[in-house]
Design a binder for these strands. Structure first.
Lengths: 97, 97
DNA sequence: GCAAAGTAGTTTGTGTCACAAACCATATAT
DNA sequence: ATATATGGTTTGTGACACAAACTACTTTGC
């Protein structure tokens, strides 16, 4: 069968990031605070994982101010969307019995 | 939603081990050489991952001789089978959109 | 006005671990 | 005897997940 493990993108495969990606996949965008609450992650973790996703070109991060508070908005890029779909396809393939 | 990342057993989630588990899930048992070929992994990697799965109580490893050659046979334990089904259920849940 | 507490994140330190290369033991072929 | 193959295990190292500590501001008592 030669199902290769490397078919599963490591950046997406990490559970924390998989969760972030699935959330971002179903909305146009989401802010940091929302993601933090939705995923139950600590701010530190969320920050580093978002940075990693950004580094991979999967997520676009935009900073602005809402009133006087900083606001970080996250959005899947086209590349990220495609990579997620690919990942999804591959892991379902691995799991199909 | 509160889909917790920790619902995905880290021992199983690792791609290499996920592959081993899916292979073992559909056969009664498999030997080292077969798994090596089927997964495309190096012997060293396969060895350490099997040891890890054994340590988690998911795989039973039996050593014997086939003629004059050593033979390592691997088999899912009941616990391993159950854990895999659980993992499968959880990741499908995460991925359901 | 100013200290304490809250909000919104980022950076740092530490322990874990995946991977391949090196190694070990034995058997077979030249 | 030397080389090559088989069937693995052990070791070294670089990557990285995680939480705790920290930065930078803002709001709330007093």
């Amino acid at each position: 069968m030669a199902l290769k493990p490397e078919a599963l993108d490591k950046v997406i495969h990490e559970p924390a990031r998989l969760l972030i990606m699935t959330h971002l996949y179903v909305v146009t965008d989401a802010d940091f605070v929302y993601l933090k609450r939705a995923t139950g992650m600590t701010a530190g973790n969320l920050s580093t994982h978002l940075t990693k996703l950004e580094g991979a070109g999967f997520v676009k991060i935009t900073k602005s101010f809402q009133g006087k508070k900083p606001k970080t908005t996250c959005k899947l890029t086209a590349k990220g969307r495609k990579a997620f779909e690919e990942y999804r396809k591959n892991i379902l393939e691995v799991l199909k019995t």
